[in-house]
Amino acid sequence: MQSDPHHDSANSVELPTPTAWPIITAFGLTLLFLGLVTTLFVSLAGFLLGLIGAIGWFGDVFPHPKHEPFPIRPHDEWPKDVCRVGRTVTHLHVGEHGHREQFPAAVHPYTAGFIGGLAGGAVMAVIACAWGYLVDQSLWYPVNLLAAAGLPELSTASTEVLKQFSLAGLVVALITHVTTSVLVGLLYTVLLPMLPAKREWIWGGILIPLMWTGLIWASLRFINPTLNARFEWLPFVISQIAFGMVCGFYVFRSTKVSTQQGWTVAARLGVEAQHPGEKKP
């Protein structure tokens, strides 16, 4: 027990004395409850028993919690020393000391994904709204179509209504669009370097948007029947690819930063200068 560790001697440990009061108190309380479903005499007995238990318990812990010395086992019964095992550890050969790094040692900064996502989302929104303004004669048409995925009053509305401004539609569309853009931007920072191609821009700019478009096409009937009924391929694909290009460009342009995961505690705390094996990839 931490409360009085000073009583420990070389041969014994102080442990709390076993006591009957907790079980008596608990039994008293149970009887108190049991009386409510049987007869009140049981409750009375339970109350008395609980009271006695509580007072006894108090005597156990006040003024000092009761302890008794517990003899320590003879030394040969002690646990065996934990010692070196005959096993070696496989090391990954990234850097000289990099075998236990948290991978990757360096990443694109998350801010790049964040800003890239926002920028890509902005370009995408501009293209969509421009298309809506020029072709469908309404700036708000694409906005409302997006919001119709989550808003029942828009999903059941006519095309004329969809072309008018709706505050709820704008808010929902904005939240959805910004959240999705930022999240996809973050995904770009972490996923693009993993992809098996040297030309990352093809993946990020074209292939991923195309895959994404295909996925949306397959599920749009359920996710957003309103948009599905009024779907236009060309602006959709163009805006998706624009997003990919802008966001990807932002992410690749950023310099990678170290995650510090390979550094020692001391190095990270700034107590030591730097881990000797730390290398910039």
């Binding site: 550890v89 496989t90 990954l92 075998h99 236990r100 948290q102 991978f103 990443v107 995961q261």
Partner: peptide, 10 residues
């Protein structure tokens, strides 16, 4: 023992 990887924030 296999390589001791702590995780990957990525």
């Amino acid at each position: 023992e296999p390589p001791q990887i702590y995780g990957s924030s990525q």
